[in-house]
Design a protein around this nucleic acid. Structure first.
Lengths: 295, 295
DNA sequence: GCCCGAGCGAACGAAAACGATCATTTCTGG
DNA sequence: CCAGAAATGATCGTTTTCGTTCGCTCGGGC
């Protein structure tokens, strides 16, 4: 028995049972697909377009779904890590190119240890679909491989940093102490002649453990990181086997890196970067973009 | 015709450098947001609507994005775990109601250990925004809390099962041995008079460790789980403090649960289930939900 | 029986999004 | 330097979608 007939302005329109069930089904549908068009929902729920619209209005007001012209988006708890939202396009082009160069140097069958950080994340994206073993302390990276059947995934545990989504703390370090990987891909907040710096005290310890666990160490860092220190010292340059950066790196730095005995790979940010993970037909170098010859 | 190649679609028009960069930025934008309207993209990229449409056509053909009327969806590798995609609407209504009842019985400030599983995931969703400490071995659950500043998150490490996204293995168990939580919320693949069963051998061990780490144990399981065994035995009913299920549970089972000394909460699936976790939008004006569309 | 509210479906004008076309600018290559 | 191709931005007619309104049915309470 629903008690109605309030003279006060009722705070909550209580829908009937059927309506509620339908809306529940609707949001289930949207949640699974991420997006659904009006037609999809009409077909799925077997009611008229008007009813769907009304449901959508209600659900949007409730905050569960977000309407768009032509459909609905699921709005329930989207985990967004701030660090990954701040995109500086220029840097991203560099990060991408750097990531591509690093990913190329990882062979199938390897065990790769991936650090947190956006550049490392790009490396991870390029490794999705490859037959490798992945060890990481980064939640976003883990998500990339979680549903991958071709790759094995080992996640380091511990306290999860809300800002960056990486696992920190003694547990992660302890687990790392018992692992050995062929390659570690590390990021850095700053690089000087003395070595790598990072912004998080606990993360520095974890990264030191990562260095100890690795057969070889790749460091990916765009040129803006050079000459900058950060909160804590992580490691000297001598621990690094390969450093990948972009062409913004000055000659002085290149010499300094070489002097430290570190292999250096410098990539061009913009030009010959394949659009996305899809390496399509043209695999050849089109530094001289030979278009179709015209008569 | 001259070109007699069997490449049905045209051999990839190679776009210029600028176009490629812009499209790269575009898909970055879409990837981060999951969805973007035409207007969003015009504003973000600073080009005309026509250009955006052309880019979208190209990207859709490439398979990177999926157009919808009014915007774009990211179509790249979305980490979807199979288990969470199988939607059985009836069961989901029950899972949801069960989850709500379990979440109600967790107080702010508690340390909660959350198992993997879809019902547990629903519990986790309802806990987002609360001031609690969360410990979990489930990647999907961890994602819910990763960007939450109000909740502390501890992730158990180990080998990640591709199908369910939970961390397994000795490392997870070992870490659990050193933790103590106020409440453990556990799921089960089957429940008999003897106790809980689960479908994964390693997971059973992890869950046993979870039981040992807990002050009190909640088990969430819809009525279809009762009377079913699964691969491995996890624990007897005596380890459980509270069992939450739905009204589909037969009287015999209710008696049996009670006889085992387990508190039982039975919830009605469809009727009085608050649709989603958001209880906050109490408005006293139910006029048209005029959603603003600022051009 | 009668009233009344809730919910649904259909219809219609308004607003938007779409695709196609075309003129202009930019880039490339000879 | 010139020519042609590529890319862009604007316009326009068409299609889709949106929001509103109206009539209808179903149930419960009086």
């Amino acid at each position: 028995m629903v008690s109605f007939n309030h003279n006060a302005p009722s705070p909550w329109e209580i829908p009937g049972v059927q309506t509620r069930q339908r809306r529940s089904r609707l949001i289930d549908f949207v949640r699974v697909r991420g997006f659904a068009s009006l037609d999809d929902l009409v077909r799925e729920l077997g009611v008229s377009e008007s009813t769907i619209r009304r449901d959508l209005d209600a659900l949007e007001e409730q905050g569960t779904a977000k309407r768009t012209h032509g459909g609905v988006l699921y709005a329930g708890s989207h985990a967004r890590l701030p660090e990954f939202d701040e995109r500086q396009p220029a840097h991203w082009a560099a990060k991408r190119a750097i990531a591509a160069a690093a990913a190329e140097r990882i062979d199938d069958g390897e065990t790769v240890l991936l650090d947190g950080g956006t550049t490392t994340y790009e490396v991870a994206r390029l490794l999705v679909g490859r037959s490798i073993q992945v060890v990481t302390n980064s939640l976003p990276v883990a998500n990339l491989f979680a549903s991958e059947s071709r790759a094995d995934l080992v996640l380091l545990g511990g306290y999860v940093s809300p800002r960056t989504g990486v696992c920190l703390g003694p547990y992660a370090n302890e687990l790392l102490g018992r692992l050995h990987v062929t390659t570690t891909v590390l990021s850095a907040a700053g690089i000087t002649a003395e070595g790598l710096y990072n912004a998080h005290l606990l993360l520095a310890e974890t990264e030191q453990a990562m260095l100890r666990a690795a057969g070889q160490v790749f460091v990916v860092a765009d040129s803006s990181k050079f000459g900058r220190k950060s909160l804590t010292f992580v490691s000297g340059l001598d621990s690094i086997d390969l450093l990948v950066s972009d062409t913004g790196l000055s000659t002085e730095w290149r010499q300094q890196i070489a002097a430290a005995g570190v292999d250096l790979v410098v990539v061009e940010p913009a030009p010959n970067e394949p659009l996305d993970g899809n390496h399509d037909s043209h695999r050849d170098d089109h530094s001289k973009p030979s278009r179709e010859r015209h008569t």
